[in-house]
Every structure is written in C-alpha cells, then in structure tokens.
Computed example of a mutant assay.
Amino acid sequence: MKSILLASASVFAFAGAAAAEVSFSGTASAEYNSLDGYATDTDLTVTLTQELDNGLTASASLSFEDDDMSDDIEGLTYGDISLTSDNAGITFGTDLAGAAYSAVSDTIGIGQGEDGLAGITGYYSIDATTIFVSMPIAEGDTSVDSDDIEFGVTSDLGGWEVGFGYDKDATDTNFVVKGSGNAAGLDITVAAGNIAGASRWDVAVAYPVGPVTLGATVDDSEAWEVTFAYAEGPLTVDAAFDSTDDYSLEGSYDVGNGLVVYAGLEDAGNDYYLGGAYDLGGGASFTASFVEDGGTANADNEIGAQDYADGTTVGVSFEF
C-alpha cells in the first residue's frame, strides 16, 4: 500500500503546475454491546484529483480502517490510481470489480466478482456500448497469464440493458449473459451462463403498484423467493418468504424530528429486533437496539436491514 501512495504522488508531480484537489472523508463510531463489550471503529479516505492539460483526469485514493483505535499503519485497506476521459478509463488498485462482474453484476458468480480484483481494470464506451477489460497482477509481477484476463460488454438494445461477461481458468471457460428491462409493467432481469462446466441461470421479476412492489426470484437450483415491499410516507414494510420455508418481516417508521424506529423478524421468526436511530445533526447520530438471535447462529452477527448485533447495543457515530 505504501507503493500505491508513492505512485500517486508521482502522478501528480507531473500533472502540471496547478494544485490538485484534495478531499478527505471518513466515519467514526463508538458503541457498547451487552455481549461483546466496548468497541470503536474509524475509517478515512483521502482522494486526490487533477485535470490534465490534455483533457484527461488523474486521480488517486487511499483508504484505511482501524477497528480498535490503534496506531497500526497496517490498517490501510484500499488504494487506487486512475486516469479517465469522457469515454474511457484505466485504474490500478485493489478491491476492484472484475470486467465480467462490471458487465453483468450477476448473482451467478463469475470471475473476480464485485471487489475481488487486485490489478488493472479498463473500460471504453462507444455510444450506448461499453467494453470492460481486467487483469489481476500482484506487486512485483512482470507478466499476466492470458487465462486471468476478463472481458465484458454492455449495451442498450431496444430499451433493454444487455451484458456479457467472460473469463477463463485452468479448466473451464466461463460466461454469463444478462438482460434487464420492462414488459407489461414487470421489471424483468434474466441471467444465464456456464460456470465451472455447469449451466446456471436465474430470473428476477418485480411489479410495482403504487406504494407496493411485489417481487419474485428463481434459479437453476429451483430455489425461489417471493417478496413484498411497501413504502409510503414515514412507513416502510418489507417481507420475504422462500423455498426453505424461511421468512422475514421488517419495518421502519420515521417518527419525525430525526428519530426513526426499526423492528423486524428474521430466520423464520427465530430472530427478532427492535432499534432506533436519532439524527444529532452534522453527520452525527445516536443508535440503540435490542436483538434476540434465537435461531441458527448468524455468522457475521449482522441482523436485519440495519445489521444489528446480537444483544443490547447503544452507540454514537459520526460522518465527516
């Protein structure tokens, strides 16, 4: 990560006499949980941007997170350097999306995924069509295996957004084709492909009726889910039921004056929670929640739409 910072500095050293725009953003939080005790978390992102004389824009960013308020510089988690124009760009960095994912954003799972790439990505747009290329390359490597290069393309055909993603590994050639659009009032997304030698597909539909949206998904494993969503004024309600007989029911109510209350059931009713958030203004908020994780243990301890932790939690958070 230190080399990324040095490289970013060298980019701007030759960007011209004008000073680069530098911005800082971050969050900080402190909380107490009845099961896990006291915890803190901070993260900071520094972004540098410079418009070059030839119409290109150079930028670099560096992020780090520290979940225990230590002074450990190894908390650095992410960095990238990019050069972009109106219709093209190239990025060097970590936690990047692979080209196949950029094209199909699929639920099937192809290539490096949404943030699994450390290496180089690039894109080029021609009217409504965009071509993506990505390749993983570790610091110090001098070559890239051609099998590791991913490709993707998106376009607009008759009002439908279509995408194609391709990657290859030592044993298989993988691809996914995706299309999304509207027909007879239905928002439809269909994805199909071949991953690791197996045919894969999934279909998602949503039907909005005023404040209500009805949805359904099904895939090649015959797993299905039906959903209900309501949003009107201060009230939201979300419900789901799937092929494993699991169900959830969650809602929120904006009381006003910065206070929002949340409640819900998950894991077929075995998990339940009640929580609230109060906006203190200026990016600060106070939160409190009570969670009973009574079903299958939640591996990431993130329950409900607000990702509450099991037990009773109170905390404050700040955005800068």
Results as ranks from 00 to 15, higher is better:
229 A>E: 06
108 I>D: 06
140 G>I: 00
202 D>Y: 13
268 A>D: 10
130 T>K: 08
81 I>T: 04
117 L>K: 10
71 D>L: 13
173 T>F: 07
187 D>Q: 12
233 G>F: 14
11 V>H: 00
95 D>M: 11
308 Y>S: 00
74 E>Q: 15
146 S>M: 05
281 G>E: 06
100 A>L: 07
56 L>S: 04
27 T>S: 08
225 E>I: 10
152 G>K: 12
139 E>G: 09
24 F>S: 10
117 L>E: 09
251 G>Y: 12
242 D>N: 09
79 G>F: 02
162 V>P: 08
299 A>T: 15
33 N>T: 11
70 S>H: 07
189 T>W: 05
200 R>E: 07
195 I>F: 05
152 G>Y: 10
194 N>W: 09
157 L>N: 07
236 T>L: 02
5 L>M: 07
181 G>C: 07
157 L>P: 05
299 A>R: 10
68 D>H: 08
61 S>I: 03
140 G>E: 01
243 S>D: 10
21 E>D: 15
105 S>N: 10
97 A>I: 07
218 V>Q: 14
109 G>M: 02
171 T>P: 00
139 E>N: 11
303 I>P: 02
260 V>L: 11
296 T>N: 14
29 S>E: 09
308 Y>L: 15
140 G>Q: 02
106 D>A: 13
253 Y>W: 09
81 I>K: 01
85 S>K: 10
123 Y>V: 01
146 S>W: 01
115 D>L: 05
85 S>N: 13
297 A>W: 11
30 A>G: 10
120 I>N: 06
3 S>P: 08
114 E>F: 13
16 G>E: 05
206 A>I: 03
52 L>F: 06
126 I>F: 15
130 T>Q: 03
319 E>H: 05
168 K>I: 09
137 I>P: 02
79 G>V: 01
241 F>R: 11
68 D>I: 01
209 V>W: 00
158 G>S: 07
80 D>T: 03
303 I>N: 04
24 F>P: 04
301 N>Q: 10
183 A>W: 03
11 V>F: 03
78 Y>D: 12
226 V>W: 08
259 L>A: 13
137 I>Q: 11
271 D>I: 09
313 T>E: 02
221 S>C: 00
228 F>G: 02
223 A>V: 11
290 F>C: 09
187 D>S: 13
285 S>Y: 00
191 A>V: 12
174 N>W: 14
90 I>P: 00
295 G>K: 11
46 V>P: 00
162 V>F: 11
311 G>P: 05
205 V>K: 10
42 T>M: 11
196 A>E: 13
296 T>Y: 14
289 S>A: 15
63 S>F: 12
127 D>M: 11
41 D>F: 15
72 D>N: 12
270 N>D: 13
142 T>L: 06
307 D>W: 09
128 A>N: 07
164 F>I: 04
271 D>P: 07
210 G>P: 00
195 I>Q: 06
51 E>I: 00
103 A>Y: 07
